[in-house]
């Protein structure tokens, strides 16, 4: 458990943020089920965390573990590109 640590920053709960969460869960469940920890952070509720992480816009996905830290912004609907950028090789999982 917890091999991948992912933080997803969203602004409030709305269609946009729900879509991002759904997309990300689908990606994680198919690429490395049960091997990830996903933390969803609402910048409206936790502005201090957003400021600390210097989040400029949402949805922003930050992969904190394993290193290197990767950060991407967008709707997370292109599964292949997301995995590629996060530097996640399916075979590792």
């Amino acid at each position: 458990m917890g091999k991948y640590v992912l933080k997803l920053f969203v602004t409030g709960i709305n269609a946009r943020s729900e879509k991002a969460i759904k997309n990300l869960k689908e990606i994680c469940n198919s690429a490395f089920p049960n091997e990830y920890e996903l933390i969803v952070i609402d910048v409206l509720e936790s502005p201090e965390i957003a400021e600390e992480e210097k989040i400029l816009a949402t949805p922003t996905l930050v992969k904190t573990l394993p290193l290197p830290i990767r950060r991407l912004i967008g709707d997370l609907s292109d599964k292949e590109k997301v995995l590629l950028y996060l530097d996640i090789n399916k075979k590792q999982a």
Binding site: F9, G12, L56, A57, R71, L72, I73, G74, D75
Partner: peptide, 27 residues
Amino acid sequence: QSFGYPLISGEHTEINIVRKTTDKLVG
């Protein structure tokens, strides 16, 4: 600053701008 790798599957996507003032922008 780190903005993040911009990932868009179609032509464009909607994002929320995080800023200090309370007015929230949609981009």
